[in-house]
Amino acid sequence: MLSFIQSTVGKKYLMGLSGLIWAGFIFGHMAGNMLILVSPDAYNVYGHAIVSNKILLYGTEIALVGALVAHVICAIFLTKQNRESRGHRYAMNPNGQKAASFASEWMAIHGSVILVFIILHLVTFKYGPHYETTVDGVVMRDLAKLIIEVFSQPMAVLWYLVALVLLGFHLTHGVRSIFQSFGLLHPAYQPIIRRAGAIYAVVVAGGFISQPVFVFLTRAVAA
């Protein structure tokens, strides 16, 4: 068990498993947040339902924090080890037919931006100003108001756009890579897996991007 985690192959399983947990979560997070396109009340009721279910809330939070810590620690170890293994750098890198994809070459870089993004995102929203509203007689946090406030600022929207595009790249390669790391590649499914990674990434990144853009266009510009 210990030697498994110490091996490069074992760390890739851990990396993939933790990535998969997050990949599952952000899909749900993206889908749920689409309610902001419906109405502020719908969004607040949804948010209130989540924070009211303490078991679901804390369970998810523990799983996510644990997975992120594991993911980042593995990323740091592997990236450091891989730099050392490469040793001397080349004057020129593979190109043309032999080039690697942009997404796969920069995993550690967009991954790091995503980490910064996750922290700032939590500070902005989860630990941000606490407004209140009442829907159908129930007092709850008015997150929609905060969202509209934040995404009325063009710079905030721009930062989310950049971070989410990078998340898209991270996921295109990441989701594909999981299949290889977990030993699930099969000649017959290889092309499908490549496409599935890209489709998943476009849906998640595209879905998320639509939210600040929608809020900005309907609130800030229209107002």
């Binding site: 490069t8 890739k12 293994s85 490469r86 037919q97 690697a100 390669h173 890579s177």
Partner: peptide, 20 residues
């Protein structure tokens, strides 16, 4: 795999450069 790691080769990140 153990020997591969001991020799100081890096970890696969599925870039596909090898196969290409």
């Amino acid at each position: 795999v153990g020997q591969m790691d001991r020799e100081g080769f890096g970890a696969c990140t599925s870039t596909g450069s090898c196969s290409a």
